[in-house]
Design a protein around this nucleic acid. Structure first.
Lengths: 221, 221
DNA sequence: GCATATTTGTCCGTATGTATA
DNA sequence: CTATACATACGGACAAATATG
């Protein structure tokens, strides 16, 4: 072959999948966009077979939808999808917090996410606030120490990102939750699992309402 | 081509994946077995590329593991995997029950699974008892009406099946839980969410203990 | 440690079927 | 209805890695 192999540790398909994953997360490939095998294969300089393997991967992560004999498209979340996503988030995040053992907990990951969000908010960098917020919830669930729960959470958050590009105002979506992340952290540091879980439930309700409202204003079906 | 296309509704790769899925579930392909691309492709009469797509699919369902440049193998669950699986089951199943709205609930699916288990147990058909048991837990989670929760549960149960082929005695694993399924159903019919959740938590603890004991006796690392 | 055989990773060309303009 | 574009699936090829003697 003429093309030199990039690295042997990851397969080419995995690298392509990662590229597409970031393009989708950044909004470079917006929801609804069709991904043509031929043009993308030439753009990424890989064969169609390899690209199709990457497609399968992302389809399974629910970032792409595969319509048989029609092609693959970037997933478009419906209002029902957003509702379901928040139902599962509430289910898992609150259950993890409620089922935590006796305190103290290893809250360093959570604490760094909280302060990162505070600093980014102070600097007005709302994209960074969004990242810190995702990191916060990932760290929260990581307290369970369960690999499968971690993976489920990562998938849910990645899927939820698809709903954020339709919303125009990241500031109003994230600003109210910076202090609430801090409050949640403090409640956990105080060792109060049940108060933390209640805080979290209300938090997620409000977050869902804010996102639903923003999407409705942007005219999402 | 000479090979007639079976049907247009599912892709060939999806059909191959389904075949492998059942072979794994039935224990025809035991954990640890390597799946050779060449021989399987000829056995199933599909091309290597198509087979590889099926492999990817099942790898993401955690039924296969893919070792780079070495091949794919049927997943071998470690003791830690089983522990994690039951942690997530307890988390999700109990949370679903606790977060149910006010009764009554649509328990017909649950009821049929319970009676199917009872009849199979009376007939001594322990494989059917195992199927009914899986159906019971799937129906339980379906009460939430959340597609994503349903899918997460299906994946967990499929993965857990991998641990059942190492255990030799399906009877001792399932028999005690036939009446407990009935008790759980009755508690839900009575509308007592919290008692149901408590019953379920104890149920899953005992189930995990039974499986762990059986696997330890069979000499699983 | 080395040479060989086997298997996987990747790409290409092509025939066929399907959806859409 | 035809034509075009595209997806599905196959088979062959070769490089690279692994397993085997």
């Amino acid at each position: 072959m003429t093309t030199p192999r990039g690295d042997a540790r990851h397969s080419t398909a995995a690298r392509v999948a990662q590229t597409l994953r970031t393009w989708i997360a950044e909004g470079e490939l917006p929801p609804g966009r069709q991904l043509s095998e031929d043009s993308l294969a030439t753009t990424l300089a890989v064969s169609r077979n390899t690209l199709r393997e990457a497609f399968r991967q992302l389809t399974h992560e629910r970032l792409l939808v595969h319509e048989f004999n029609r092609g693959v498209f970037v997933r478009v979340l419906s209002a029902g999808d957003v509702e379901d996503l928040f139902y599962v988030r509430r289910l898992i995040e609150c259950a993890v917090v409620r089922e935590l053992g006796p305190p103290p907990y290893g809250l360093t990951g959570l604490a760094t996410a909280v302060t990162a969000g505070e600093q980014a908010a102070a600097a007005g960098d709302w994209t960074a606030v969004a990242s810190a917020n995702i990191h916060f919830h990932r760290s929260l669930v990581a307290l369970a120490g369960s690999p499968r729960t971690d993976e489920i959470m990562s998938r849910l958050l990645a899927e939820l990102r698809l709903a954020l590009h339709t919303a125009v105002t990241p500031r109003t979506l994230y600003e109210p939750f910076v202090p609430r992340n801090r409050a949640l952290h403090d409640a956990l540091e105080a060792g109060d699992r049940h108060q933390s879980a209640d805080l979290l439930a209300a938090y997620l309700d409000d977050s869902q309402a804010a996102l639903t409202k923003a999407n409705a204003e942007a005219g999402v079906p």
